[in-house]
């Protein structure tokens, strides 16, 4: 019982030292993810058992990602939402673009929150640099996406013979963009002797 109380007290103490800028980034990312889940459920997150399940799973994964922005829980949450869209069927042009924007916003905010520990201050310069990089990606993605949806809506069907090159293109893109190395290395010990061959 005593260890439980101490654990809770330690958790409260850890929450108290989180900087307000970190609260804003992480809760903003979580809010965007939850709003994306609501979009997938047709703005009825508790309208059906499936919607409730989806909302709770995304909420849990979002909380894990909020606590540790470098974790893979956010990736699982993205995959859950994509699978939900596959099962539920097309959402409509506006909802699809909004979903894309919300996922991008949560992704960018978590990426910035991971730049410093939770008790660290994220200053305006860092936020401005992130916005300058994220906005063009969002704009290009939404414009291209709107064009793609317009083509699909006009009845332009993808020929069957494009399937194989299309899959190959996706695989090549994956190979090009996927990270080749593991997690960043541990900080180098400045007192350790340097390897002259390195």
């Amino acid at each position: 019982m005593r260890s439980l109380v101490e654990g809770v007290a330690q958790a409260i103490a850890d929450l108290r030292i989180v900087d307000p800028s970190q609260w804003a980034l992480r809760l903003g990312a979580l809010a965007a993810l939850l709003l994306a889940a609501a979009l997938v459920t047709g703005m009825a997150p508790f309208g059906s058992p499936q919607a409730v399940l989806l909302t709770l799973v995304v909420l849990l994964l979002g909380l894990l990602q909020t606590a540790r922005p470098d974790a893979d829980a956010g990736l699982v949450a993205f995959c859950v939402l994509v699978i939900a869209v596959v099962i539920a069927g097309p959402l409509g042009a506006g909802a699809t673009l909004a979903l894309a924007a919300l996922l991008m916003v949560s992704h960018a905010l978590w990426a910035l929150a991971a730049s410093v520990p939770a008790h660290g201050v994220v200053r305006r310069g860092a936020l401005a640099a992130t916005v300058r990089r994220a906005l063009p990606a969002l704009g290009i993605g939404l414009v291209a996406g709107a064009g793609l949806l317009a083509l699909a809506g006009a009845g332009a069907a993808v020929p069957a013979w494009l399937m194989i090159p299309g899959v190959v293109a996706v695989v090549v893109l994956l190979v090009l963009l996927l990270p080749r190395d593991g997690a960043p290395p541990a900080p180098r010990d400045p007192t350790a002797p340097r390897d002259p061959a390195a």
């Binding site: 990736l75 994509v82 992704h107 990089r133 290009i140 793609l148 299309g166 996706v170 963009l177 996927l178």
Partner: peptide, 30 residues
């Protein structure tokens, strides 16, 4: 970004669902 974008893109191509590609397009562009 890469795994979610690539995975959804592959599903979009295989299932003929361009809306899935639109959802992850900003991440891939990023």
């Amino acid at each position: 970004a890469v795994v979610a974008g690539g995975g959804a893109g592959a599903i979009a191509v295989l299932a003929g669902r361009p809306d899935l590609l639109v959802v992850v397009l900003p991440l891939l562009v990023w």
